[in-house]
Nucleic acid binder design. Structure first.
Length: 773
RNA sequence: GGGCUCGUAGUCUAGCUCGGUUAUGACGUCGCCUUUACAUGGCGAAGAUCCGGUGUUCAAAUCACCGCGGGCCCA
């Protein structure tokens, strides 16, 4: 009989036609019902080209979550969004156009960023579509749209009214040349020659000299403590004692701290506000009172006494001179020091306290821990990242940024008395260009205002994603039926940011947790296990890989190669080699397509055996799917299809399926079983490889989409798995013996079927053309 | 520098919870074979200091401790 499937291999080019058909049939369009399963899809950030292949793999797996839920009878709401706020696009735009943000008119700069995002986003959307994501592309959202930003501002205004937002001063990276705070991402480090000055401090009690080495002697006036390593025996009897600071003659305590390196300098380190980031951490940890020694003009302040008005470098030269004159210097070493510089101005940054907005979180930590406990994590080990983070939070969340491409903080200040004005929600506000909606200041009656120029931290936007997609404060019925959402899938590197902030914000706004499950994926590394980056040149562009190998190949690679939650290595060669399995599946289907699909037949013992193995496979797959672990079903299906079904059962049943030497009833048993197994495999595999399964399903079994089917159920058949190894051992024995005797597989041979396989005797004799005994 | 996390052939992985066979399977590599629906196939081979060390034990990939290495986040 001619096979219905003529082509000898799966052609990934067929995927386009299938995509088109799905779109025409509106197969994945979402209609609200009572059985909704909402995915809090991560909106990817278009930060550059190419998109990370690990991210593409990540989205392929999120789609498997959606398809698994759909084939489990859920009404799946799978929104698609793009995160477009934040620093990376600003840096990308500056580089692309050779401009600087602060030297460009704000509106013009925003336009350039927007265009850059549009280009990058188009590529990401294309990849997501090509991968076969069954998401709601028709309504895809952007976090920088007027609607989304209005929503972000509304949630801020709500929290402002609840009194959860406040202003406070904290140390910031400050580039006094360009007059701005800068983000950590804008700092570059350079080895710069400098002087390490060994200064003489005096113990208050015994008047003993203690030598302290520092590269920043001009900060003596801001010195608040001296730290020594608790294991440093030289100082163990001085811990807790007072020291007199040279020149300023103020008194500071000696504190033990592990960050003091015994071998650096004298082992004792002065802690000043602020010489470096370690000082910031220590001031916070030891709760020291900060002294502002360097002002926003980049010069020493009045606390520096006679050095006031000098730049830090000038003050350093002068203070070294004065220390030497007072015989307070033991020695000076010329060293090379890793110095943080502003990427823009290439001058050393200073750490200067500045006023920023904060969102209260410290008093919610217990509640967050409780919610964290309630949420099911996949895999469970990654819950620890959240719990450890909750343990270590020591300050409230700073939410304002001195950047342009973000949601504007909706506040105006009275020009007379600085009283802030926060507008009513319901409109998208841009205080840097919009007129203040208030006529006059409620406090002093003045009518002139200045708009806030700062924007929100980008997590302020993305942390309300589950509320935005469920139409919180927009559509009450929709919200009630979709929130809390079912699951938050995301990568593990942003558990402490996106996952935590979402938990915090949604709880503050709704009183409920945003999801009951969190699915955490590992990180995509290169083939040697190193992080991929454009500068290292080891980044793999996913688009050509998917175009060449096909989405299903890429998806099956992702499922079968990545252990849930663990980091994974990406290599094109490995992805391409996964295609062989799809080829196998195709050819199994091609062979079966030469037999009619029939409803029943008389089952032989071999049929019962393979059906019992199939039953086991269903059970393993469903267990894996229930944990959103696609490694389990993909590897189990490959193993079953290749090594049991194709290699053993099809060979055993082939002769009977052709009907030579068997009754019609016996023949039909084989044909029925072949199709039953294949159709079940297709359904089990549909969430992982939606294209090839759809094509084969529609060619062989139905006009309708396989993606409207439910996953198969187990039938609790008798376990015959002890037969599997016996059968394959016997078959191998016969094949090998024929090979040794240089016989064709069709040739007859005299081998006795062992007692243990007696029940399969008729099939085995026909299969191997055994001389009957 | 701190916290967390992981470590089984070149790569992915089973086994580890609860110690006991020759450490599972796959990809890749190499060799042989036009032979079945499939050479995009079949058969076979090589390939592991189970990260290292110490301890507990008759017995350790498995348990405990100390290291080392990768990754992530924070600084």
């Amino acid at each position: 009989m001619e096979p219905k499937i003529a082509e000898k291999a799966w052609d990934p080019k067929l995927e386009n036609a299938i995509l088109k058909k799905w779109k025409e049939e509106k197969l994945y369009d979402f209609q609200l019902s009572d059985n909704n399963y909402t995915i809090d899809t991560p909106p990817p950030y278009p930060s550059g080209r190419p998109w990370h292949i690990g991210a593409a793999s990540h989205y392929a797996q999120i789609d498997m979550i959606a398809r698994t839920a759909r084939m489990s009878g859920k009404n799946v709401y799978f929104p698609i969004g793009i995160d477009r706020n934040g620093l990376p696009v600003e840096l990308y735009t500056e580089k692309k156009h050779g401009i600087r943000m602060r030297e460009t008119e704000r509106g013009e700069f925003l336009e350039l960023c927007k265009n850059a995002l549009d280009d990058l986003e188009a590529e990401m959307i294309q990849i997501m579509k090509n991968l076969g994501l069954s998401g709601d592309f028709k309504n895809y959202y952007r976090t920088d749209s007027e609607d989304y930003r209005k929503f972000t501002q509304e949630t801020f205004i709500d929290l402002w009214k609840k009194g959860i937002i406040y202003l406070a001063t904290r140390p910031n990276n400050y580039d006094w040349v360009s007059g701005t705070t800068i983000a950590d991402a804008e700092i570059v480090y350079e080895e710069i020659p400098t002087k390490l000055v060994y200064m003489k401090f005096i113990t208050k009690e015994t008047k003993k000299e203690i030598i302290i080495a520092s590269t920043r002697p001009e900060l003596l006036c801001a010195c608040k403590t001296v730290i020594v390593n608790p294991n440093d025996e030289r100082y163990s009897d001085l811990i807790g004692k007072e020291l007199i600071v040279p020149l300023t003659n103020s008194e500071v305590k000696i504190t033990p701290h592990h960050s003091a390196k015994i071998e650096f300098g004298s082992g004792a380190v002065m802690v000043c506000s602020y010489g470096d980031q370690n000082d910031v951490a220590l001031f916070r940890e030891l709760q020291l009172d900060e002294v502002i020694a360097i002002g926003l003009d980049g010069r020493m302040t009045e606390v520096a006494g006679e050095y006031q008005g000098l730049k830090p470098k000038q003050a350093r030269t002068k203070i070294i001179e004065d220390l030497e004159n007072a015989n307070l210097v033991e020695k000076i070493e010329d060293i090379s020091h890793r110095t943080p510089l502003s990427e823009r101005s290439k001058t050393p940054i200073e750490i200067v306290p500045m006023e920023e907005y904060y969102l209260k979180q410290k008093d919610s930590l217990e509640k967050m821990k409780k919610l964290g406990e309630e949420i099911e994590f996949y895999p469970n080990m990654h819950k620890q990242i959240l719990m450890n983070w909750l343990e270590s939070i020591s300050i409230d969340w700073p939410i304002s940024r001195r950047r342009f491409y973000g949601t504007e903080i909706p506040i105006w200040y009275c020009n007379e008395c600085s009283e802030p004005f926060v507008p009513e929600p319901g409109k998208y506000y841009r205080p840097w260009k919009d007129k203040c909606p208030a006529k006059k200041c409620v406090k002093c009656g003045n009518t002139e205002f200045t708009g806030e120029e700062r924007t929100f931290d980008t997590w302020m936007d993305s942390s309300v994603s589950p509320l935005f997609v469920t139409k919180f404060n927009r559509d009450e019925e929709f919200f009630k039926k979709t929130y809390p959402t079912a699951i938050r899938p995301q990568a593990k590197d942003i558990v402490r940011t996106w996952l935590y902030y979402t938990l915090l914000r949604c709880e503050k706004l709704t009183g409920e947790k945003p999801w009951s499950e969190a699915w955490i994926m590992g990180y995509g590394l290169d083939e040697k296990g190193m992080k991929m980056s454009k500068s290292k040149g080891n980044a793999i562009d996913p688009l050509p890989v998917i175009e060449k190998s096909g989405a299903d190949t890429f998806r099956f690679w992702s499922a079968s190669e990545i252990n849930q939650g663990y980091d994974f290595r990406c290599s094109e060669q490995k992805i391409e080699s996964t295609r062989k399995f799809l080829s196998k599946l195709w050819n199994v289907s091609r062979f079966l397509s030469s037999f009619p699909v029939i409803k029943s037949g008389q089952l032989s013992e071999s049929d019962k055996w393979i059906l019992s193995e199939l039953d086991k496979l269903i059970s393993v797959c469903k267990e894996g799917y229930s944990k959103y672990n696609f490694f389990i079903p993909s590897t189990a299906i490959r193993e079953f299809t290749w090594n049991i079904f194709a290699a053993q059962y099809i060979e055993i049943a082939k002769a009977r399926a052709y009907g030579i030497g068997f009754t019609d009833e016996e023949r039909d048993g084989a044909i029925f079983t072949l199709h039953k197994v294949l159709s079940t495999i297709l359904k089990l595999l549909a969430p992982i490889t939606p294209f090839i399964t759809e094509h084969l399903w529609q060619t062989l079994y139905s006009q309708d989409s396989i993606h409207k089917e439910n996953l198969p159920n187990i039938e609790n058949l008798d376990d015959m798995s002890e037969m599997t190894q016996l059968l394959s051992e016997f078959n191998s024995k016969v094949w090998n013996e024929k090979k040794q005797k240089e016989l064709s597989l069709k040739d007859s041979i005299k081998i006795d079927v062992p007692e243990t396989l007696n029940q399969f005797k008729k099939d085995l004799i026909a299969m191997h053309n055994l001389e009957s005994n």
